[in-house]
């Protein structure tokens, strides 16, 4: 499998002329972006460059003011994050997406609970045992061993919580996983764990799109880097061979180090 996409392959997700205004503020202007299978795409840029705004459009959290989105070749719209999820685009939110007092299994299956028939065919009840088992299996796929997934999320470490959030994406079998600063609030060890989770997703053939201000993370993980500046995409290149210093330089100058 090729590490990075290229013009010879069909893009999975493709943005054309995407723009986003908040009133008079232009957060994103005329962005074209193709995302290919097998990629870990890092979106970089200074504060206020428009990274989050762009990602919100890809995740269905916000509608673009201009432009079109194609998914697997067909033009589409994401009416809500849930609509995007149904189309295979999952977004991992930093704090918003988990209910700490509910069980790990309930969090993984939130909104998509498993049921089993209760005697009569039309009467179905929650299948907690299967949800607990399958939640454990999803976590194991991410190399996170949690024996009892009926425990509340509250007792988990930051890295484990990310794993629970990512398990929900696996539950939906999302082909594209979007993360906005997935390691922002984490310590060194937990950051390493999350980077590992991202590698696992990649090894399963899923596309990961992430925003990060941590250049070491980006250099270690990304197969492609996009740099944004004042809402526009100014650089889009393979990440291969880039050092954290190169990345920092590109963000500050807005120019590709190779040029």
């Amino acid at each position: 499998m090729a590490e990075t996409g290229g013009p010879d392959r069909a893009p999975l997700l493709s943005l054309r002329g995407i723009g986003k205004n908040y009133g008079a503020v232009v957060a994103v202007r005329d962005v074209d972006l193709d995302v290919y299978p097998g990629e870990v795409l890092a979106i970089c840029g200074d504060n206020g460059a428009g990274k989050s705004s762009l990602i919100k459009i890809m995740s269905g959290a916000q509608a673009p003011s201009a432009g079109t989105i194609r998914l697997r070749g067909a033009e589409t719209r994401f009416r809500s994050p849930h609509d995007a999820l149904l189309q295979g685009v999952a977004t991992i939110y930093q704090d918003l997406a988990l209910a700490p007092r509910l069980s790990i299994a309930a969090n993984v299956f939130m909104g998509a609970e498993l049921t089993r028939p209760l005697g009569l065919k039309f009467l179905r009840v929650l299948d907690r045992a299967r949800m607990a088992d399958e939640a454990r299996a999803y976590l194991r796929r991410l190399s996170v061993e949690i024996a009892d997934t009926r425990r509340p999320v509250a007792g988990l470490s930051g890295g484990q919580r990310q794993a629970v959030a990512i398990s929900r994406a696996l539950r939906w079998d999302a082909g594209i996983v979007i993360m906005d600063e997935p390691t922002a609030a984490l310590g060194v060890k937990e950051t390493a764990q999350v980077l590992d989770l991202i590698r696992r997703l990649k090894s399963e053939g899923r596309v990961v799109i992430l925003i990060s201000h941590n250049m070491a993370d980006v250099a270690a993980l990304a197969t492609r880097v996009v740099v944004m500046r004042a809402g526009a995409k100014v650089i889009d290149r393979p990440a291969e061979g880039l050092t954290p210093d190169d990345l920092g330089h590109m963000i500050i100058t807005g120019r590709d180090v190779a040029q």
């Binding site: 809500s80 994050p81 849930h82 999820l85 149904l86 977004t91 939110y93 918003l96 997406a97 988990l98 209910a99 700490p100 007092r101 509910l102 309930a106 969090n107 939130m110 909104g111 998509a112 609970e113 049921t115 209760l118 009840v125 929650l126 929900r168």
Partner: peptide
């Protein structure tokens, strides 16, 4: 509350409204 999906959705709504909404509830 304990057997139905609706009950699970009510619980999730009360525990973490934003999370529940993002999960399509």
């Amino acid at each position: 509350i304990t057997w139905t999906r609706t009950g699970a959705h009510m619980t999730a709504t009360g525990e973490a409204e934003e999370a529940a909404r993002l999960a399509g509830i």
